[in-house]
Design a binder for these strands. Structure first.
Lengths: 340, 340
DNA sequence: CTGAAAGCGCTAACAG
DNA sequence: CTGTTAGCGCTTTCAG
């Protein structure tokens, strides 16, 4: 059995309250000698406060849950997001509890005990793919503050500025002198209702920025989602076109970038020299033998901001982070190739 | 304020004990009508049990911590491991609490509150890179059951069979008829004390299996860790050698595989046709425009087994999972090229 | 069939 | 300066 306050009190020959106060750092009212004796006893017995007891007292758990879906290949845990979130939580001496959630369960039950019981102060909700209204309602019914990740929903959400990322890439490529641009996607392709809005937003941002600059922009999309083995052939077909070939190609995801790079390479085109290639990803993408310019998804910032927002709500504070999408950073990688 | 048992009791016009028992599903001693009334009241008020109170009572938290280091690029959270761990925990109605840990803090403090207090039933310890004896001691001093991940340490650890993975690749390549084999590593290179033992184990397993089969095996290693931009040139130098070139190359990590593939591609060698390439990674590796044969690191199985082991210790059961390293699976990808 | 009561480990008034 | 006491919300005997 774990060591309790009472055992420390007995060991030190004082009352429980004394031990509690001294160990809580508010022992200024006690004689130095008493404090020393108490701390020694606690040390000797290896005393550790029982968090449950404290939580019960305070009515708070000090724990935030992360609802993460399991049904889907994209439902995997975003490293950086968790890193950002846990870092922010740590600053407030709070912790992150991972909750795998089969999304169908959210509507039909049974839900995991952590949702049925009260064991967190709030939730980060990462069910961001094609969220249904009933799912939103089910989450609202949990009765604790919740913040949605990578999902657009009023002011209770935090997501990256995907449209801005598309614009960012266009601006950089235009600034490098490119006038024949292209946007390629062989992962989601032309799916009009892709799993996540970001695929559309990124593309639209890119196209809009090209249009604003008066530069033509080819858009090359596969028919919907495309399995890995069919991607390089698709890119080859397209890149073989010769004359009309774009001098700069942007993609909205790593897979598409690697595909285009692989195709370019086997056509004898040097990525970063004969062809500028840029993309959007969590981290600088290595494609065609070099790090290519990458708009960096601000996953950590999203995690941090979501936590700050959630904690502000939990604590009933009004000073949460400013609303609005989180901007992307840009990593030039090995540099942007000049046209021609 | 949250709804408590007492409020439900008042609402239903019964005692607290009655509500507790009925809602715990042990209401068989009560009149049906009472049960109905209680459940209706709970529903109406949106009652959710307070987990802290229950934990305090039971002396258990139902929470397992995952100690994860932050100082290191490899300290990132392994998706699959977390997936496996949380899945196993779910089966036991337990949850995973993420704890970022600056390793230096472990020895010099201050440690996060979750380590100073008692708030989990045990820990999965993921500090697997060059673990120092003092760190092991510090973890032992936490006073709760702990299981180490990807670190070899007595019977309180779970790790993949990296040596077996090296052997596995050799066997597959040999079985496909290859006799001129090579092992390449341009990520860790020849570091005699790499961050993680697995780099050595995998290589040794491969070499040993080649030796056992009497097949020659080139070993190509960079000098220690090599930055991304220097890798492809290194591979090019090597692959240009002509005649003596191996027909099959294995690598112990994704980066090395992609590097070799990229170099091969720019030399006009078709990966999977002119050259067999195999590697070891969490998931099938896409390199040289196709999925190459990959020994799959059993991350999920490691997570699951670690949890089962930890829970067995927490509950004082003797029926934990069998000890021993966790075997790798194999994914042939687009198939293994035949030699010549 | 149902309620009263003790107690899990801790905090915070309030006495002394 | 230090101890007593009354809960926090829940489970679990034990009476009635």
């Amino acid at each position: 059995m774990a060591v309790t306050l009472r055992q420390v009190a007995d060991e030190a020959g004082v009352s429980i309250a004394t031990v509690s106060l001294v160990l809580a750092g508010r022992g200024d009212r006690y004689r130095d000698e008493t404090c020393v004796r108490v701390r020694a006893a606690a040390e000797r017995l290896g005393y550790r406060p029982n968090a449950s007891a404290r939580f019960m007292q305070r009515g708070r758990f000090g724990i935030v849950g992360l609802l993460n879906p399991v049904d889907h290949r994209l439902g995997t845990l975003p490293h950086g997001m968790v890193e950002g979130a846990t870092r922010a939580l740590e600053r407030h001496d709070r912790y992150l509890l991972l909750v795998r959630l089969e999304r169908s369960r959210l509507l039909e039950g049974p839900v995991p005990a952590v949702l049925a019981e009260r064991m967190t102060d709030g939730f980060l909700v990462n069910l961001h793919l094609r969220v249904r209204a009933e799912e939103e309602a089910a989450v609202d019914r949990l009765g604790v503050p919740c913040v949605w990740l990578n999902h657009k929903r009023g002011d209770a959400c935090v997501h990256p500025d995907d449209e801005g990322a598309g614009r960012l890439l266009a601006e950089r490529l235009l600034a490098a002198g490119h006038r024949r641009l292209a946007w390629a996607d062989c992962s989601y392709g032309d799916d009009p209702d892709p799993e996540h809005y970001s695929a559309l937003d990124r593309r639209q941002g890119f196209i809009a920025a090209c249009a604003a600059a008066g530069a033509p922009c080819q858009v090359r999309l596969t028919r919907g989602w495309t399995p890995a083995e069919r991607r390089v052939p698709w890119a080859l077909d397209w890149l073989r076109q010769g004359e009309d070939r774009p001098t700069a190609i942007a993609t909205g995801n790593e897979d598409s970038a690697v595909t285009v790079a692989t195709a370019a390479l086997s056509l004898g085109l040097r990525v970063g020299a004969d062809l500028a290639l840029a993309t959007i990803h969590n981290q600088p993408v290595f494609a065609g033998g070099r790090l290519i310019p990458t708009a960096l998804v601000p996953v950590e910032a999203v995690g941090e901001r979501a936590v700050e927002l959630l904690l502000a709500r939990i604590d009933g504070r009004e000073d949460g982070p400013a609303p609005g999408p989180v901007p992307f950073a840009f990593d030039a990688g090995a540099g942007i190739a000049q046209p021609g």
